[in-house]
Nucleic acid binder design. Structure first.
Lengths: 140, 140
DNA sequence: CCCAACTCTATTATTCATATTGACTCTAAA
DNA sequence: TTTAGAGTCAATATGAATAATAGAGTTGGG
């Protein structure tokens, strides 16, 4: 299951994708009904992952770092860490499983790498813009 | 990431697949270097999922409930609960996500259902017997 | 009858996700 | 140059899930 953080990340990103110019944390939180303070943590991570950029001071706020059609689901999903179901099948955070006898003789590694690969392919070929059409307009 | 329980489950199952007749909890635990008491919980769940059968009394122990080539990875993975990354994309435990505005307007549901489907297909077409050949006589 | 096995019910420990708090920094505009 | 509106940072609860442990109870073959 994906984390609440990732859900909020998706919602915030879709919100930004439907907005123009910098949007304040407060308005995202209010409109998406997310705890302002928790959303703050989410936004910091989104920034760290280079999915949004921020500006300070009056008129400051957040914007997508790239056009919506260049932000893939895979890019957002990383908020939850590696895609793989075991460390040894991970591309981004590969490491041997503790107590692994020998990767060459591992009975689960190859299957879970297949799964990781399949999942990545699907998540990478979908972007935020795939769904902008069906989302309700922002009415504020 | 899969849970420790699921890892132990795989190891225990592979161990049984390479054994003959009932195997005691104690021998699985000793050979696979798993806490005897924790493995007990794992075996209870494996039994509940009908992946193993047990017999009591002297000479008792655990055996695979079916031939190894009829036990798929998907069957074992269920130890960790639903395959889907969101409740609304789950086949086995479907329910609406909390705070879901409208499933028809959900921007993540359809993608995550694709992922669930792809994952299930991969896990279902692999069975324990796919890997019996490469495993050492004892110890995964 | 007895021992070696599984079974059941608790309890504890650890980790992780979720959330909240308060103080701090920056910057455009008045 | 002041200031209000914005993002930033650090620290700390809280709660749920996972992992592990403990001990008493049951079963059945020899």
């Amino acid at each position: 299951m994906i984390s609440q953080k990732t859900r909020y990340a998706f919602r915030a990103l879709f919100y930004l994708a439907r907005s123009k110019g910098p949007v304040s944390l407060a308005s995202i939180a209010a409109n998406e009904k997310i705890s302002r303070k928790f959303l703050e943590l989410v936004m910091v991570e989104l920034k760290r992952h280079r999915l949004v950029v921020s500006s300070r001071g009056k008129k400051g706020g957040y914007e997508l770092a790239r056009p919506a059609n260049e932000i893939s689901y895979a890019g957002v999903r990383v908020m939850d860490g590696p895609l793989a179901m075991v460390p040894c099948a991970s591309v981004t955070a590969h490491r041997q499983c503790r107590a692994c006898y020998d990767p060459d003789f591992c009975a689960i590694r190859s299957v879970l790498m297949e799964v990781r690969q399949g999942t990545a392919e699907i998540l990478e070929r979908h972007t935020l813009s795939d769904f902008l059409g069906i989302l309700p307009k922002i009415t504020v």
